[in-house]
Design a protein around this nucleic acid. Sequence first.
DNA 1: CACAATTCAATTGCGCACAACTAAATCGCG
DNA 2: CGCGATTTAGTTGTGCGCAATTGAATTGTG
Lengths: 157, 157
Amino acid sequence: MTTLPGMADEELLRLDQQLCFSLNAASRAFGGVYRVLLKDLGLTYPQYLVMLVLWEDGELPVKRIGERLRLDSGTLSPLLKRLEVAGLVSRERSPEDERSVTVRLTSEGSALRERAGQVPRRLLTATGLPIEDLAALRGLLERVTGALDSALVEPAP
Amino acid sequence: MTTLPGMADEELLRLDQQLCFSLNAASRAFGGVYRVLLKDLGLTYPQYLVMLVLWEDGELPVKRIGERLRLDSGTLSPLLKRLEVAGLVSRERSPEDERSVTVRLTSEGSALRERAGQVPRRLLTATGLPIEDLAALRGLLERVTGALDSALVEPAP
DNA sequence: CACAATTCAATTGCGCACAACTAAATCGCG
DNA sequence: CGCGATTTAGTTGTGCGCAATTGAATTGTG
C-alpha cells in the first residue's frame, strides 16, 4: 500500500485537486438531478432530506433531525419554517421540555410520501452505476467523513 | 451484478437515503477541514479552488474558470470581486473581446501559493485513507458525475 | 451592410451552510 | 433551595450555488 508520507508535494497537490474537484462536482451533480426530480413535489434537496427522516419517524425534535442530517439550528430553523408554510409539517414546543420544538408531519406531509416514491429509483438509475459500486462509494464516503470529523476534533500534532 | 430494476422500492429508498446522506455529509466534512486549513490564508474553500486553477495557469478568462470548476458567473463574479478586494487577483476586460474579463494573479496572489503548500498533504492525511482508496473514490465520483450530468441533458424516457 | 442570434459577465433573488450570538428553559451542584 | 452552567431554538451576517434576467459586445446570415 502506498502511503502519503513517501509522496512528493507535487503529486499530493494533484490528487488533492482532483479529489476535492470531483467531490464538489459530484455533490452538485446530485443536487442538480434531485432538483429536477423534486421540482414537482415543491421540495429542495435539503428539504427532501428532512422529509425522509420524518417519513421514517413521523415526529422528531429539531435536535434529532439535526443529528441525523448533520445540520444545526441555523440551517434547520428557516428550512422548517418554510416546510411549515408549505403545510407539510407542524412545529410545537414540547410540553415536557419547553426548550425543545417537536416537528410533526401533517397529513399533507405524509401524503407527499407516495408522490416521492419513484425518486430514489430514478436517481440511482441516473448514476449509471450498479448497486455494488454505489455501495462501495457509500462505504468510502462514510469512512472519509468519519476520519475528517475526528481530525477536526483532534487537530494534527 | 445486481441491477436496479430487480430491486424493491423499499431497498432502493434505503440505499438512496444512505447515499445522498453520505455524499452530502462527506462534502461538508471536506469543507469543514478545508475551512480550518485555509483560515490562515484568508481563503474559503471555493476561493481556494479558484486559486488552484490560477496557480496552474496564471491568468484565465472568467469563462474558463467556470468551465474548470463547473461554476457560473452568478457564483464567480462576486467571488472574484472578493479575491480582488483581498489583493490576490486583478480583473480586466479583454482588449480583443470586450465581453470577456481576464482574471490575473497579482504578485501577492502568486506568493500565497507557497503558504498553501502543505494544505493538500494535511487534508489527504486527515481523510485517513491510503492513496489507493482515495484514487478509487475519485474514480467513482467522476463516473457518477458524468452519468448524472448526461442524465440531466437527456431526461429519462 | 443591417439586424437577429449568440456569447459573456454581472446582477437579483432565493435557499442552504456555518459561525457567532441571544434568549429561554432546564439541570446540577453547593 | 438558589444560582451558575448547560441545553435548545432562533436570529444575524457572510458566502456559496443556481435560476432568471439584463446589457453590452460579437458573430452570423440574409
